[in-house]
Design a binder for these strands. Structure first.
Lengths: 210, 210
DNA sequence: AGAGTTACGCTACGACCTGTAGCGAAAGGC
DNA sequence: GCCTTTCGCTACAGGTCGTAGCGTAACTCT
């Protein structure tokens, strides 16, 4: 969770866990009030009731701090078994859309992704703490659909991985694009169309036999 | 193209068009060298051989400047008739992916989208100069597919618009997510899967009868 | 209890970027 | 030639970054 490893030494004054949580909470609050570009380390420190130097002892820069502050929000994502592939898809899409509606994620997610294009460690941090969490939902959804017989069992494992990657990019990308670029609501009707497109198209992809 | 309207007065010294193009070109070069976060107005002015005040006379801030600098790159997007819906989709996806491979677009596009979540005029600027240009390709592609008989003719115009919006968000979103978030190559195999998913799923969406 | 170690809050600082103002000079139209 | 607008240049106040130094607080080990 924290950036710089505080040397697993047992001696000395331990780091304040309360400060950690206060800083991350203050970061989210600052994102809501100020947005990404106007958020400053000094402001976050003030909100958290912490010295600015304390922030720099834990996080090297604004990007890593914001990733950690936003990452915990993605813990909410869950995939209850609703009985059909289409219902599962619609549920997770609505969940993801609700997450993107929150101002702290809306303003921060694209900003850190933009920075990650020139910062490999940051990209890895995003992948580990945010992207992988979402991707697991896709894997679970496919597994359940196979158990129900809605999707054929695995043949070529390479093709299965590729299809999982495709589905993940399509779902996550479409929702993000709809919410942030097109700036249109991700409502029930749109989700119905998207899930119909996916369920209907999955058969065609499987028929490729790649 | 330019931000502040220079008062359509015929009198007085006219604005240097060379300065405009030099500034936009310098902005793209600075994006390649420095990325989004480290790009400064002073640096761009220096590269363009122009005073910093000249930049502020044309663009109010970094965001609007970068949008204009990147927007012209999207003029390259074209949709030649390749004879089938699937071929058309694959071609435009590969074009879009090639555009996202360029470091200036890769680093700038998500950054301005992130800023636009808190800046309605900027969002409108992006929509007019970038998003609409892409969306027209979707409309052209559907029209051609209808002429070929690959897709049914329009019944409910509202449903048709909604489907166009869906297809656009799915294609653009999936490509961006694949290239920038997953950071995996948009190669021929992936594009084949995506287009198969779309072509196969479109029938299911139409069958919704919404 | 005392020594050792580490984190903390605070202040100060140089470097940098922002966005604006004022100036004289240049480049057009009338 | 006069008027208008833009140009380059310099200077400036305001804000942010990230670091250094200091004394103090908290915790562990002997």
């Amino acid at each position: 969770m924290c950036s710089s490893t505080p040397r697993n030494s047992r001696t000395g004054r331990p780091r304040s866990i309360e400060a950690d949580t206060a800083i991350l909470e203050a970061t989210r609050a600052a994102l809501v009030d100020l947005g990404w570009s106007k958020l400053t380390m000094g402001d976050v420190a003030g909100r958290a009731g912490v010295a600015k130097t304390t922030l720099y002892r834990r996080w090297a820069n604004k990007n890593e701090l914001v990733v950690d502050a936003v990452a915990v929000l993605f813990d909410e994502l869950e995939l209850p078994d609703l009985g059909s592939l289409q219902a599962d898809i619609e549920h997770v899409v609505l969940q993801f859309a609700a997450l993107l509606e929150r101002p702290e994620t809306k303003t921060a997610l694209m900003a850190v992704v933009a920075e990650s294009t020139r910062d490999a460690p940051l990209r890895e941090r995003i992948r580990a703490s945010i992207v992988d969490r979402q991707k697991r939902l896709v894997l679970d959804g496919r597994r359940r659909a196979q158990l129900r017989g809605e999707l054929p069992s695995d043949r070529d494992p390479v093709a299965v991985d590729a299809t999982d990657d495709l589905i993940f990019d399509v779902i996550a990308g479409a929702v993000v694009h709809r919410a942030l670029v097109s700036a249109e609501p991700v409502d029930g009707e749109w989700v119905t169309r998207l899930s119909a497109l996916l369920v209907g198209g999955l058969g065609a992809v499987a028929a490729l036999g790649l």
